[in-house]
Amino acid sequence: MIDHGLLVQMLIGALLGISVYLPLATGQLSLATPAFYAVGGTLAALLSTRWAALGARVDGSFPLPSFLLELVLGGALAGLLALLVGRLVLRLQGIYLAIATIALVEIVRVAILNLPFTGGAVGIFGIPQPFPTAAGYLPPALALLLLAGWVCQRLEVMALGRAMAAVREDELAARCMGIATTRVKLSAFVLSAVLAGSTGALAAHFLNTWNARQGSFDTAVTMLAFVILGGSRSWLGPVLGGLLLTALPELLRPVGDVRLVLFGLVILLGPALFPQGLVTPALLERLGRWGEGSRP
């Protein structure tokens, strides 16, 4: 039912879900993830097809260390961009921030479309492959996801994570408690961008081709749906949401042309059925207590 190619796409969905979740964990609704995803992907596509030093071979294969280097560079460039932009946009609140980040996504999309070296509408194709099959992408995608999950889990006990939770609950109160709220929000924003950039670099190789359409308003919406339906109170929510919602349209193939209508219905009715998403703090608590009997 689910082949390795789809599984990689699901893992990419989970990674992007975490990327949207991170700013949300500080109470900031940022939809900038597709912009950083596009930046990371474009960088990887350019480097691997234009920069011979990375070692792309004529048969279309690509050395693994160069691929890993691209993951790092994609993340770094996206993070740098986030550092510059974040200082400006994070002064905005709520829906204004959401719209400003949608604007950022559109600006990046049009820029990739118009820049002289990104291949215009056709994009960049013939991206060399570090792995002979889709299964090869599973270990790096899974490793990236485990790393992101580990960081998120660590955050819950680290000072930064606690500060993020405090800013999310009440920014003003957090400021009064002496928390540098701007720095906290910026950290989450940059972390989110680094993750999106690395994911983009991975996706560029996986998709064989890269163009401006990869990071658009539509993708932003889909990623937000991952977080909302999965649950925005724990990093596991977007992971579950990303895995399920990426697989759903593919699993709905047997119903034919109505599959996107059904997909829309899930997004429409899901939040009413699960207002806190699938993964709620209560669920995690129950899961943690499971097998402990009724010991308090």
């Binding site: 609704l29 959401a98 919406v221 937000l224 749906a225 909302i228 339906l229 925005s232 109505v258 996107l260 209508v261 997909f263 829309g264 219905l265 899930v266 997004i267 429409l268 009715l269 899901g270 939040p271 009413a272 207002p275």
Partner: peptide, 20 residues
């Protein structure tokens, strides 16, 4: 529910409508 959810449900409604 939190206002954030309205974003998603209304987008879902739009998706259904366009595909119908």
């Amino acid at each position: 529910a939190e206002p954030l959810l309205y974003l998603i449900t209304s987008l879902g409604a739009g998706l259904v409508l366009v595909n119908l």
